[in-house]
Simulated scan of single mutants.
Amino acid sequence: MSSLTGVADGRGARLPRSARRKQLLAAAQEVFVANGYHAAAMDDIAERAGVSKPVLYQHFPGKLDLYLALLDAQAEALAASVVAALDGTDDNHERIHRVLTAYFDFVDRDDHDGAFRLIFESDIVNDPEVRKRVESVTARTMRAVADTVAADTGLRRPEAELLATALTGSAQVVARWWLASERPVTQDEAIALLESLLWRGISNFPRTGAPATPGA
C-alpha cells in the first residue's frame, strides 16, 4: 500500500518515500559491500531493511537499478569531497594534502562501511552502466584537479590531466592498499608520506601564467 506521503510495507511501518528510499539504500549498501553484486539478493536486502519485497520493488524495479542508485550516491560524495578540497584553499601544497585526505576519508570512513568498494572494486564493472558511472567519477575528479594544475602552472591541458591522473590515481590506490594492509601506519602518517612524494614532483612546476617546460 502506498500514498503520496508514505509507504507501508505490511509490517506496520510507514515512512515518507524519501526516508524509505534512504533506508533501502542503506540496507542495500550493507548487502552489496558484504556479498558483492552477483551474490546479493533482493530478498536479503528487503529483510535487512525490514520491509517486504513489494515495497522494495516500488522504489527500485530491479537489483541493477538499486546498485546504480548507490553507485551514483557514492560517486557524487567522492567528487564533491575532492572539489571541496580544491576550493577550500589557494595554497597548492595544502590542496594536495586535502585531496589525499578526501580519498583516505572516503576509503576509511568512521563507520567503516566499505562503500568505496562499489566504485573501485565492483564485481560488475563490465556492465556498461556501471562502467560508465565509474569512468565518470574518475574523470570528474581528475578534471577538477587538472583545472587547478593547468591554471596554476600554465601547462597544456593534456599535461595537466596527466599530472592530475597521477595524483588522484595514487590517492585512491594507496588509500585502498593502506586499508587492506590493516592500517600499518596512522592515516595522518600515510597521508604525510604520500603528500611529501607528490609535492616533491608537482612543486617543480612553478605557479605561472606562462607555459612551463617539464624538466627545464
Results as ranks from 00 to 15, higher is better:
D108A: 13
D110Y: 02
D111E: 12
D111N: 14
H112V: 06
D113M: 03
D113K: 00
G114E: 07
A115D: 04
R117S: 10
L118A: 01
L118E: 01
I119N: 00
I119T: 01
F120K: 00
F120D: 01
F120A: 08
F120P: 00
E121A: 15
E121W: 11
E121D: 09
S122L: 07
S122Y: 04
I124F: 06
I124C: 12
V125N: 06
D127Q: 15
P128H: 11
P128E: 14
E129F: 05
E129I: 00
E129T: 14
V130H: 08
V130K: 10
V130M: 07
R131N: 15
K132V: 02
K132N: 06
K132F: 01
R133T: 07
V134L: 09
V134W: 11
S136A: 15
S136Q: 15
V137Y: 03
V137K: 02
V137C: 05
T138G: 03
A139Q: 09
A139W: 11
R140F: 02
T141D: 02
T141A: 10
M142E: 04
M142N: 08
M142Y: 02
M142H: 05
A144E: 04
A144S: 15
A144F: 05
V145E: 02
A146E: 02
A146G: 12
A146V: 05
T148P: 00
T148W: 04
T148R: 14
V149N: 02
V149S: 02
